[in-house]
Amino acid sequence: MNEEKPTLEAGSKTGDVSRRNALKGIGATLGATAFAAAISPLRNLAKDVSPEEFFQKHYQELDDDEKTRVIERLEAEARSEYGAEVQIRDHRPIPGTRFVYAINLSLCNGNGKCVEACHQENNHDRATNQSYIRVLEMPNGTMDMEQGNTTYDHAVPAKGKFYLPVQCQQCDEPPCTDVCPVQATWKEDDGIVVVDYNWCIGCRYCEAACPYHARRFNWEKPVVPADDVNPDQGYLSNRIRPQGVVEKCHFCLHRTREGRLPACLEACPTGARVFGNILDPDSDIRWILENKRVFVLKEELGTKPSFFYFFDK
């Protein structure tokens, strides 16, 4: 190709230059057409993402009017895409509240009702049986999670085993929020780490950073039958998540910020779960933290969980 010795200084050569340029033009047009055809599936995405959704601001920058409009839009989407009438509200932290969870491992028997309750309450994808809680079945005599098993399928409690439910630990030093490049996840004043599902870009750096496997990614659009949709929803909690974003346990803030208890606690038949406001000196959770020998998972990482465990026999 080099016999012509192309040089930058030379002016255009006469002759077949124009024919060559015409051929190049045809080539470029063909290439561009083929590219347009190759990426044409993106039209479906463009249909799904309205201009209002595309330009929506970060949750913390929305004023009240904007929030109202966003929520109306999301409710309309739930109607058109899932056939469900839902009420989405924007629950804010209650001043003077700091939520803390504790689990009595002597009582937990691994029945998994918390896992199911989370699945229903939070409108998780039905086919994948998604939930924010995983329960490890551990042999007595060790705290080494490598000995644990999350896929046990037999009558519980099994002899010689104990059960360790793990969900978001709502860390005071959350590695997941630090790594987020766009501040789509943050810790609120009552201690709950939340995600703005409409701001997350889906890079999954938070999922890599979390030491507790607490985060989930929506690998596809969640499927929930209309009758099964929990209509009582929060913007930062259990509304049906879009495809391609990260989600996590939010201590059922659409319930707990209204003075109710998390769904996993209400579902627990053993009474192993204790939830409350640590700033309230008369709360059960406060009594447990003051009187039981509680521990946290992976304390050496310095994440300072708001989630405690204890044995009482």
Binding site: L45, V49, F54, H58, D178, V179, C180, P181, V182, Q183, A184, W199, C200, I201, G202, C203, R204, Y205, F217, N218, P242, Q243, G244, V245, V246
Partner: peptide, 30 residues
């Protein structure tokens, strides 16, 4: 390669300093 790894490439602008919310200097990704 980073772009194709994003779950929501349509929200790429959230990462543009000034337009989006650029979590600098805390996030090493920024």
């Amino acid at each position: 390669f980073v772009t194709v790894d994003l779950g929501r490439p349509d929200r790429f602008w959230h990462l543009i300093p000034g337009l989006g919310r650029f979590n600098f200097p805390v996030s090493m990704l920024t």
